[in-house]
Design a protein around this nucleic acid. Structure first.
Lengths: 328, 328
DNA sequence: CTGAAAGCGCTAACAA
DNA sequence: TTGTTAGCGCTTTCAG
């Protein structure tokens, strides 16, 4: 692979001139430009980003941290991030942490090392302490995650309100025994959704019973199946379930299609509106987050932050999508 | 962020010595090492990958090209790639092309530019001509894709044989009218699966009818719904369907749960064994590819190729997973 | 065992 | 308008 020296030689100019043509910064005579461009053609030259980045100390690469790409929730967000980044001549790097601190570290170091210009974290399992440390000297944005007290800018929805709406919908349908399939409540979103669930129940004078609140370790389908099975065993069975993730809700539907068949139907509401949610039987009522938009905004915020400007956090609206799983 | 100079100064040694400590290549006196390590601690130093990479002209980054992360088929493969890469001190960069040539180009350039050391392509829509051009001078591996005549090493299963097994299973169940929901047959895997479908039918003296072969543009659920609807309209309705992707098959099941209810049940076989496949109603019979292993092997092959060694292509075994969708 | 210095490919300040 | 040159942060040869 040719370098800028060879192009200069081939074109009979200096490397500075080649660089000028490359970045069309200052004026170059049309003839000179021609000569250089021909040389570039002939040697099939591609400027080395490594050299350029080292010199400019920027990489135009954005890191996107997520626990796992297996949750389809992230798909649309990533689309938004990617389109926005590319439109601004940035590229993104998808980084799966698998919730492992070592991996997280690798990616944090890439930012510290200038191998990437900034980071968008969508990982609820992230080490917030380390992230704050990183954020002191490097651009960081939280997407769909946030910290109330935090100094790191975020884009999210109001999880408490969304959960409240979901549960209120179930109450309006006449349900009085409503279970919650929640994830690990070390996560802020889990605590907020729990709060929304409780607020809705209390507002309508309904009982909040511990045995109706199930915590899962992860968000896979199987966890939802498991949770629903336990709820079905209860002496006092709930008549409706709010799951904090579509993947869990779909697992719950699966359990209802199996052992649940012998009981009265149970209404289910999920969260995220993943594409599979309209493929299940019954189709799934769920909360839709503006995922694409969240991604776009997160990318914009990060790029603004890279420019050295301050950015403000954003809270977006959600929407309740009513489908068959709450239609009896 | 401190650089190697400052560490050298702080420790009262030369930059060369700092570099030696960093890479513990040649011997350094314990005391000197101590001094340097203390300086590194004090200044919270991280060596710049940019500088290091430029000097070594390697990045220890592997690019993984895929059309879209929305197809869950890729999830496990990526896991395999990532685990293998990290175990060998490499990192991966997930690159969604969205089947757009411009994006493809961006990523190819990253390799040409030495911003990445090699590329694993899982994108059936990739421009093979350009990929070959890239492969002349840079390490490239195909995963789950391949070219018969190609000079690029690949890891895959035998798509023709797998399709043959899937269709044979349907025939053994007594089906004589078997439809195929295929993707765009500009893709090699689509042509191979078609060939397997035809071979099975012919072997049992069954008709291959054009109207039973449906081509979809993409692999989303909706395309499967659409395809099944069309097949249900047919005067001579098939009694079984083989879809070349679980996403399509799940869409087909959806259609069968809807308008298909009025007809006799239709058996369905998918392809890939994505995690959703056991969540549908009925659960989906499908071909399972050893995805995790494919990912591991692809990564190993690429790293071998980066070392400058030759690598041979690999064909792995598949497996038929029988579930409810072919159990009447 | 350690240090001085060259150089990876590029950009930009300065000079001509 | 164009060329010369320093330097981004690092590794590695070559001397000492």
């Amino acid at each position: 692979m040719a370098n800028i020296q060879q192009i200069a030689q081939q074109a009979g100019v200096s490397v500075a001139t080649v660089s000028r043509v490359l970045n069309n910064a200052t004026a170059v005579t049309p003839e000179t430009r021609q000569k250089v461009q021909r040389a570039i053609q002939e040697l099939n030259y591609q400027p080395s980003m490594l050299g350029r980045n080292l010199r400019n100390s920027e990489s135009r690469l954005l890191l996107v941290l997520l626990p796992s790409i297996s949750n389809p929730f992230y798909t649309e967000i990533i689309n938004g991030i990617q389109n926005t980044a590319i439109a601004n001549n940035y590229n993104i790097l998808l980084c799966e942490t698998d919730s492992k601190p070592e991996r997280e570290n690798i990616y944090f170091n890439m930012v510290k090392n200038k191998l990437a210009d900034g980071i968008i974290s969508m990982d609820p399992t992230v080490n917030m302490h380390k992230l704050h440390e990183l954020a002191e000297h490097h651009p960081v944005v939280l997407c769909s995650e946030y910290e109330t007290d935090g100094s790191i800018p975020y884009v999210t929805i109001d999880h408490e309100l969304a959960a409240y709406h979901a549960v209120k919908h179930l109450i309006k349908l006449g349900n009085e025994k409503i279970a919650l399939i929640n994830s690990d409540d070390t996560f802020l979103y889990a605590r907020h959704r729990l709060a929304g669930y409780e607020r809705a129940l209390q507002e309508f004078g309904l009982a909040v019973r511990d045995e109706w609140i199930y915590h899962t370790k992860e968000l896979d389908f199987e966890n939802g199946v498991q949770a629903m099975r336990v709820l079905l065993q209860l002496e006092e069975r709930p008549t409706a379930v709010f799951a904090v993730s579509d993947t869990l809700a779909i697992g719950a539907l699966k359990a209802l299609n199996g052992e649940g068949k012998m009981y009265e139907p149970i209404a289910v509401v999920g969260f995220d509106n993943i594409s599979f949610a309209s493929m299940t039987n019954p189709t799934l009522t769920t909360i839709s987050q503006p995922m694409y938009k969240m991604g776009c905004l997160a990318a914009e915020m990060l790029m603004t932050s890279i420019k050295g400007e301050k950015v403000a956090s954003i809270v977006l609206d959600h929407e309740l999508i009513i489908r068959e799983s709450t239609m009896g």
